[in-house]
Structures are given as C-alpha cells and as structure tokens.
Design a protein around this nucleic acid. Structure first.
Lengths: 334, 334
DNA sequence: GATCAGGGTGGAAACGTTTCCACATCGAGA
DNA sequence: TCTCGATGTGGAAACGTTTCCACCCTGATC
C-alpha cells in the first residue's frame, strides 16, 4: 500500500507538505494541494490510521459496549450511534458483554488497548466499571453507583407509571411484575416506579407476583411459569423489557391462556414485532433515536473537553390489544 | 498511560527485553518475565495497539460489513462472528451499508484506512466491491460476480425447494413470490430455485405474482398490496426474507385476510419472533451459527495464508401454522 | 532601498512498539 | 584450556504519520 512518502515523491514535494496538503492542516498553495491530491488518487493512497493515531494520540474511533446485540433495543441503538459517528468520520467498535460481567471486563480491556477516544457503555449490574482514567465515558440505559459519567436513559419512572395507570384504568388491580435484574439501575428504577404507582392506586401486589428476571427471553418463561400458577392469578403481567415479554407471552400461550382475554401481557420496550403478535402487544416505547443521538453527542462533548450532563428521554405508551378488559373479575367492574 | 518504556524502567531491564518478556516472542529468563509482568501490572500497562500495528503490520482487527444490522438475521450473524473473533483476541469493526451501495463504498474506504487484517462482507448487489488488493476477503450470504473471494451462504436452492414442495404438498398451486432484489445473488438464487421447483410441479406462477422487493419491511408491504389485488388471488405468498415477510403479513392483516386460512404467508429466514406471530409463521430456517463460524474460519485461513473455499450451509424447513390448507380451492382437493 | 510580515516549503523529531543484530555469559565438549 | 552453541540481554532501526522549527521567498510598508 502506498504511503505518504510515495505520494510526496510522485507530487514532487516533501512529506511534510504532502501531509499538510491532504489534511488542510497548514499552509499549502492551491497548486500544490491539487498536485498532491492527484498523486494520492493515482496511487490509491489511504492514510494509515495506526501511524496517525500513534502521532496524534487520537484514534477517531469510539467503543460501544452493549449488553446484548441480539436484543433489538440494543441493536437499534447501535445502528443510531454508528450512523451518527459515521457522519463525523468516527468508527465504532461494538462489543458484547452478553449480560455477563466477565465479558464486560474483557471487552473494556480490549477497548483500552485500542486507545479508543471514548466509550459508550451499557453497564452490567454489580460490576465495577474499570475504565482507564481520563477516558471519556458515557453510560447508556443504566447507571452505575458512584460513577461521575453522564447517564443517558429513558424516563423509567414515567414509563412505568404510564403503563400502570393504563392497566388500572382498564380495571386491573391484580398486576404482576417481571422485573429486570435488580443489580441494574433500569431494573431497579422500573420496579420501584411500578410499585409506587400501584401503591398510589391502592393495589399493592402480592409478593409472589413480583419476579426478577435478567432481561433475556428465557427468564420471561421462567417467571411466567411461576406467576401463572399462583392463586389468585394476576390479571395482568408487566414485563421489564421486550425479550422477557416474549418469554411471558409464549409461556402463557403454552398454558392455553388467551392473551388479552384470560390475561393481559404488556412490556416496557416496544418492538417492531409487537404489532404483529397475537394479539398485538401494548408497550411502553422508548425513543431509541433520541437515546442514541444523545449518547453520541454527550460523548462527543466529553471528547472535545466540553462538559456534558445526564439526559432523560421521555417514553410513550403504545396501546394495542394485549390488555383488553374481559379478564377482569366483576368486583372491579364498578 | 504507561508505555513499555515505563515498564522496562520499573523492571530494570531494556525495552527490548520487556517486549520479549510480555509477548513471549523471544528468549527471556523466568525471573525477568516475572519481574516485567509485575511491573506491567503495577503500572496498569496496556500495549498501544496503534504502535504495535504500525510495527507489525497487523491490527488483530477484522471488518464486518453488514447490509442491515437491524435485520435480526444479520445481527445474529454479527453476534456469532464477534464471539468467535473475541476468542482469538481479534476485534471486529462492524459497519452498516444500509442496503445502499454508496454507504458500502464509504464503509470499505474507512475499513481500508483502518488496515483491518481482513474483511467479511455481505455485499450490496449491483456494486463492484472495491477492496484494497491483497486484503483477505470473505463474502457472506451473497456472492458477487467475478470475485475470487470465498462465499459462505445458505443453500438457497434447497431452502426454496423445501418450502415450495411443502406448499404444493399442502395443495397450494397458486403461489406468489416476494423475491429479494435481483441485483443480489441470494435474491436471484432463491427466485430461480422457486421457479424451477414450481415448474417441476407443473404450476408456473402468473407474472403478476412475482414481485421484487429489497429485503426490507416496507417493500413487503408494497409487494403484498400489489399481490393481494390480483384476481385470482394467490393462495400462498412466499417472502424472500424475514423482514419482507413481516411486511406481507401486516398488509394482509390490514386487508382483513386471515393468515393461514384465507391466505398462507411463509418466509425464507426464520426468526425468534415467528413462533409468536398470529399465526406462528412457517419458515425456512438458516443455520446462522454455522454461517457465522464458517465465515470467520474462512477469513482466518485467508489471513494466515491458507487457501479457503466456498461453504454452502443446509437450510431446514420449520413448519408452523401460517399455511394451513383451508384456503385452497376445491379443484386441487383430489 | 531596507525592513517586515507572512505564506509556502522541507528537514527532522517524535509517537510506542517489535525485531534485527551484536554482545556477553555460561556450561559442555574437545 | 579453548571453542562452541545456547541463552539472555541491550542498542538501535523501522513502521507511517504529524508537527515543530527554520528557511526562503514575495510583496508591502516605512
């Protein structure tokens, strides 16, 4: 591959001049610029990022550490962030923690040796986030205690309240919660907000109606299996993310329950698939576009040395048909 | 951040020795190794990849160019490939072409300046794939004419035949096809195989029953809109990927058609969501794990200078309930 | 006509590694 | 005792950039 040396030689100028001409980083006569550009084109020259990084101490690359790429919520976030970064000619190295703290550590080590300019992390609960000191860091979707990094997240309190209010309005009083892992802030916040909202309506759930999952589909199954065997059975189940909702849904189906009639199933987190389910699922939609853009912008600020703060993005209730009222016992029909 | 110089100083050895000790790349006494290791640990030393790459001409990074991360088929592939690479301490830079050729070009340019060790690409149809000469390259899911790069893909011929045979066996004879873009090899192969299979059964479809989409959800809507207005109406629609199937499904629903009763809708490409749809969708499942691993292994071979060849991964028909027989006219009940 | 400002240019250092080469040490074999 | 090979070590070059600095012009200002 051609180096800047080759380009300079072909253009008949020095390496220094070639560099300035290509980057516009210093004085260079229009003629020279043209000459160097042409030489670079002819040779198919592409700057060597490793060499540039070594010299400039920047990589024009950021790290994105997700907890699960296969969760559409996160893959959509990755999409938005990658798009925004590409517009700035910044590359994104996406890694996966698979909801595991050891993977998170490994990924962070790897990102550190890459000397990425900054990091957007969806942190694993229960782990201390070991990031090289001085490395710009933005937390996405979840917070971690004691970290000074800005946090970009949905308004979990609002979203939870919207859904609980909706359910109660429909007449539900026996509402079960499949919470996210309580080691994660989003899991905690959503559960707490749901409980507070329920409390406000005077319908505190039975303890056995609160089950902790891990944001993955399997745990939705397991939780539903436990929940649906209780007597009395709850009339509605609110799952803490889209994957667990899917788990709950298929477990309920397997038991022959008609969703939306025998029992309501709803989800925090919307999904493009929800409108097509049987029946279409009511959900609290997160504004993925805003979340991703805010995270990228926050990181960009940090990298540029500007201060940056937390962002809370509002949620929106999307009512579909997975919680019609027919399942509700008469006592509440008043 | 500590450099190897600092480590060497702290361990009281030369830089050269420190490097050898840390990498095991040359002779070093056990005592020295221990000493250097400890010094590195104390300092929290992480090798600077840019510097290493500059010297070694390797980056231990590969590029993965996808056509659409938000398509679960591809995000699952990304997951598998990233996992496999991580086990080798290889990083993956994932980029998105968004099914657009200009984005593909931009991404390839960017990947070239990163000097990735190799490239796994899901190529856009209709574009010539400009990859730096000598750069190891593996094509995934789709082939491109004239490229000598190994191709890893599902057995489109088998999958198409499995599905057509199944439909015909159920009594369908009026089968419509929402094909993938004919600029992509997978789109072409699947359509050709479907037509051949239909021919074999003596039921060549009417021209208006063959519609070309672009693998995205919207085009499924559009195709279905056209298809469902024809008279006679086809009794079954076979979509070329999971996203277009979703589009067809929701369009059909919007028109009040009962899927699996009034009309059958099936898909090339399975999805974790398909079992939950209304009704659960019959699909040709691709073996994503095998595809991803094969692609990574092929690239690894190429990077190591070993030859590598095409891989065709078998598909599997997953029968659910989106194509029961009630929609089929009597003429075929014999 | 001398001075000055500033644009354009080239030489060379520096970034942090790895690795080639030369050298020293040591034990074993002649 | 001398040589030899193996082993461990350090110096220094090289990878491809960017950027500091010094230099040479040119044209304008005094």
């Amino acid at each position: 591959m051609a180096t800047i040396r080759d380009v300079a030689a072909r253009a008949g100028v020095s390496v220094a001049t070639a560099s300035r001409a290509l980057n516009g980083s210093g004085p260079a006569s229009p003629g020279t610029v043209e000459l160097v550009r042409r030489a670079a084109d002819d040779l198919g020259y592409r700057v060597n990022k490793a060499a540039r990084s070594l010299r400039t101490q920047r990589t024009d690359t950021i790290g994105l550490l997700l907890s699960d790429v296969r969760n559409p919520f996160f893959s959509d976030l990755a999409y938005v962030i990658e798009q925004a970064a590409a517009a700035d000619h910044v590359s994104v190295i996406t890694m996966n923690a698979d909801e595991r703290t050891d993977r998170q550590e490994a990924a962070l080590r790897s990102l550190a040796t890459q000397r990425v300019d900054g990091l957007i992390v969806v942190p694993q609960g229960g782990a201390t986030l070991e990031v090289p000191t001085g490395m710009p860091l933005v937390l996405l979707d979840r917070r971690v205690d004691g970290s000074p990094a800005p946090v970009i997240q949905s308004d979990n309190e609002l979203g939870s309240r919207q859904m609980i209010d909706h359910l109660v309005e429909l007449g539900h009083r026996d509402i079960a919660l499949v919470a996210g892992p309580q080691s994660s802030s989003s899991g905690r916040e959503r559960l707490a907000a749901c409980l507070a909202a329920l409390e406000g309506h005077g319908c505190t759930p039975r303890p056995e109606w609160i089950v902790e999952g891990d944001f993955q589909e399997r745990s939705g199954h397991v939780a539903a299996a436990a929940l649906l065997d209780t007597t009395p059975r709850p009339t509605a189940v609110f799952a803490g993310d889209n994957l667990m909702a899917v788990g709950v849904l298929s477990e309920a189906r397997k038991r022959g329950l008609r969703i939306g009639e025998d029992i309501a199933v709803v989800s925090f987190d919307d999904s493009r698939w929800f409108p097509l389910l049987d029946p279409p699922m009511t959900a609290v939609a997160q504004d993925v576009e805003s979340l991703g853009l805010a995270a990228y912008r926050a990181l960009k600020d940090l990298v540029a040395g500007r201060p940056s703060g937390d962002v809370v993005v509002p949620t929106r209730l999307v009512v579909r048909r997975s919680c019609t009222t027919s399942s509700i016992p008469a006592r509440r029909s008043a």
